[in-house]
Write a protein that binds this DNA or RNA. Structure first.
Lengths: 230, 230
DNA sequence: CGAATGCAAGAGCGGTGCTCTCGTTTCGGT
DNA sequence: ACCGAAACGAGAGCACCGCTCTTGCATTCG
C-alpha cells in the first residue's frame, strides 16, 4: 500500500476506487449474481474491456467487495462493543450491531454468507477480515472468563478431536479450552444463520417479531456460552 | 395429477419428466447458477425454445427442482426416523440422515438453503414440501413430551410475541408452548446452518472431524430442546 | 529524443434467457 | 369424416453477459 508517486499511479488508484465504489453500489441494488462488469463500465463511461486493466476478472472484483464487506461487518461488531460494559450487555450489543449492518446491507451479507460461487474459493487474504466479527464475540467471553463470571459449561461434552489445533492456537491467548471454543464456533454460526434465515425469508410466517426473536436467540446463545443471561 | 388420457398428454408428461431429470443431473454437476436451459435442451436434442413449452422460465424449472429437493431431504429425514426408538437415538439419527443427504447432494442443498435468487420468491406450493424435515424433528420432541421424558426448558425465556400464532396453530396438535416452539425453530435453523457451514467451507481450519463436530452439534441442540443427552 | 510501457477503445467469440414466427401434428366437436 | 383450434418443434433473432485480442494514442523513462 505505497503512496502513488507519479500522476499515472495516482490516476490508477483513483479509478480503481471508483470502479470499486460503482460495483459496490450496484451490488447493493441488484445483488452479486446481477452485478455485471459491463454495467459497471457503462456507469463509469468506459469500455468494458478497460475495466480488465484494474480487475482481472469478475471474480476478482467480487473478491474485493468481499473483503470490503467482511471488514465492514467486523467494524460494525467492534464499534458496537463497549469493553467497559458488562459482558451480557456487550454480547447483546454486538449481536444487534451485526444485525443492523446485515439489515442495511443484505446483498453484501448474502455475498459473505450465502451460497459460494461454484468455481470460486475465497482467497486467503480474506481470512483476517473474516475473523474480526467472530473475534469480537470471543473477546467478550474471554473477558468474562478472566473476571470469573463465566458459568460452568452447559450441555453435552464435545469430542476434543472435533476442533483443529490451529483454532485452539489462535484463541490460545484467551485461554479457551475445547468446550469453550466449540461453543464459540456455534455462537458465531448461530449469529450468521439466524440472520440468514431472517434476511432470506425463511422465518416468514414463523416469527412475528423478528427483532424480539433475534434478541431471544442472542440471549440463548450467550447463556450457552456461559454468560449470565436470565 | 390426473392420469394422461391422450397420447399427446402422455408424451407431454414424459418429456416434462425427462427435462426435469436432465436438469436435475446438470444441477448436481454445475450447481444452480451454472444450470442453463439451453444446455438442458441440448442434452435432450431439442431446440431451446421448445423447452419453454414445458417450463415457462428458468426460474420455473428451478422451482420444480426446489420442490423435488425439499421432498427428498424431507424423505431422508423421515426414513432415518424410527418411531419405536428412544427420542435421543431418533434425534441423532434424523440429524445424521439429513447430513447424509446434504453431503450427497450439495448443490441441491445450496439451492434449498443458500442465497435466494434476487428477484425470486419461493411459491407457496413449496411450503408443504419444505415442512417435512422440520416436522420430523418436531414429532420426536412431541413424542418425548407425551412420554414425559422431556426436561424442563433450559436457557432464557422467549418473548411470546416473537412467534406467530400461525406457527403455534400448526404445531398445536403436538401441544407445544411458545418456548418449545422457539427452541424447535432454533434447532431446525441450527441443522441447516451447521451443514451450510460444513458444505460451504466455513469450517475449514476450524473443525478437524466434521462428523464428530456435527454429532456434538446435534446432541447440544437436542439437549437444548429437552431431550436427555448426556 | 526515442523506446518502452500503460492505457482506452473497439471488434469479436461463444455463451445466456427469452420471444416471435412459421409449418406441422394432434385433438375434440360436429 | 372432416375442420377448426390448440399444442408442438424448430429456427431466427434480440439484448445481454464474461472475456480476449488488436489497434492506436498518451505517458513515462533511459
Amino acid at each position: 500500500m505505497n503512496a502513488p508517486r507519479t500522476a499515472r499511479e495516482r490516476a490508477r488508484a483513483e479509478l480503481t476506487a471508483e470502479i470499486l465504489a460503482a460495483a459496490r453500489r450496484q451490488l447493493g441494488e441488484v445483488g452479486a449474481v446481477g452485478l455485471s462488469l459491463r454495467s459497471v463500465a457503462r456507469e463509469l463511461g468506459m469500455a468494458s474491456s478497460a475495466v480488465y486493466r484494474y480487475f482481472a476478472s469478475r471474480d476478482d472484483l467480487l473478491t474485493a467487495l468481499l473483503v470490503e464487506s467482511y471488514n465492514e461487518i467486523g467494524e460494525a461488531a467492534e464499534r458496537a462493543d463497549d469493553p467497559d460494559a458488562a459482558p451480557e450487555r456487550r454480547w447483546l450489543a454486538v449481536w444487534r450491531g451485526v444485525r443492523g449492518w446485515a439489515l442495511a446491507n443484505r446483498h453484501e451479507y448474502a455475498l459473505l454468507f450465502g451460497t459460494p460461487v461454484p468455481g470460486y474459493a475465497a482467497p486467503h487474504l480474506t481470512a483476517e477480515a473474516a475473523g474480526r466479527m467472530p473475534l469480537t464475540l470471543a473477546r467478550i467471553v474471554a473477558d468474562a472468563k478472566r473476571a470469573g463470571t463465566l458459568a460452568p459449561p452447559p450441555g453435552p461434552a464435545c469430542d476434543p478431536a472435533a476442533v483443529t489445533p490451529e483454532m485452539l492456537v489462535i484463541l490460545q491467548d484467551m485461554a479457551f479450552d475445547v468446550e469453550e471454543t466449540a461453543r464459540l464456533v456455534l455462537a458465531w454460526n448461530r449469529l450468521v444463520a439466524i440472520l440468514g434465515y431472517e434476511l432470506h425469508g425463511h422465518l416468514v410466517n414463523i416469527t412475528a417479531d423478528d427483532a424480539a426473536f433475534f434478541d431471544y436467540t442472542a440471549r440463548t446463545e450467550g447463556a450457552f456460552n456461559g454468560l449470565a443471561f436470565d
